[in-house]
């Protein structure tokens, strides 16, 4: 005999994500979930974003890391409020972890919340955190073949930030190929070419995160 059931396996996470989104909406604060490989430049991008948005949308940060507080320390140095989540071995953040972190942030004075996920192109793609937009950071030294190798994460991104463009010429990375593969998998994604080292392209990115009020 078969007993029919319909129960989503990740329902617990989806419910927690919905609560996070409600809390953020209640405070009128948009949230970004920043994902990408280790070393792509997620923390650097967040550092630059804090500086660029200081006057118009103060950034509050949730840092997900497996073991260290290094990223949180980098962000705290810039004076941004930050809550560290030590996942203790987990390779991704989930909505419950983010919910706890949100409870420890002053959302009232934040213009935007940026959540830095654990460096990984696989697992974070599966977990809704309650964010409003998902961002994937990639970089030239990683190689231009990542989109078709990790299609899921690129397919759900609202924006893809290609970092370290100052290394063009030093590494073989065909930006055209990368863009056309992204266009096939996810034609709606915004695309930014930036260098966090030289600040190239970051104004456009900051405008996407928090548009300047039109006078």
């Amino acid at each position: 005999m078969e007993i029919k059931i319909i129960e989503r396996i990740l329902a617990a996470n989806e419910n927690a994500a919905a609560e996070n989104r409600e809390l953020l909406d209640h405070n009128h604060v948009p949230a970004l979930n920043v994902m990408g490989s280790p070393g792509a430049g997620k923390t650097s991008l967040i550092e630059r974003t804090i500086a660029l948005l200081r006057d118009r949308a103060p950034v509050a940060v949730i840092e997900g890391d497996i073991a260290t507080t290094r990223d949180a320390e980098r962000v705290a140095k810039l004076g941004a409020p930050v809550v560290q989540i030590a996942t203790g071995g987990e390779c991704h953040l989930d909505a419950a972890m983010v919910g706890e972190a949100l409870a420890n942030l002053d959302l009232h004075s934040a213009g935007v919340v940026i959540i830095e996920n654990v460096g990984n192109l696989v697992c974070p793609a599966e977990f809704d955190l309650g964010e409003h937009r998902k961002v994937v950071v990639a970089s030239l030294p990683e190689g231009d073949d990542k989109i078709e190798k990790y299609p899921l994460i690129f397919s759900i991104a609202d924006a893809v930030v290609l970092n370290k463009t100052d290394m063009a010429g030093l590494v073989d990375f065909d930006i055209k190929r990368f863009r056309s593969e992204l266009d096939a998998i996810n034609p709606k994604a915004a695309f930014f070419e930036v260098s966090c080292r030289t600040w190239h392209g970051l104004d456009e990115w900051a405008e996407w995160v928090a548009p300047r009020a039109v006078a």
Partner: peptide, 18 residues
């Protein structure tokens, strides 16, 4: 580009055989 995925991301328990 206005394409929606109608199925293909399911992850659910649909029954138990006893």
């Amino acid at each position: 580009a206005k394409v929606v995925l109608r199925q293909g991301r399911e992850l659910e328990v649909v029954g138990i055989e006893v």
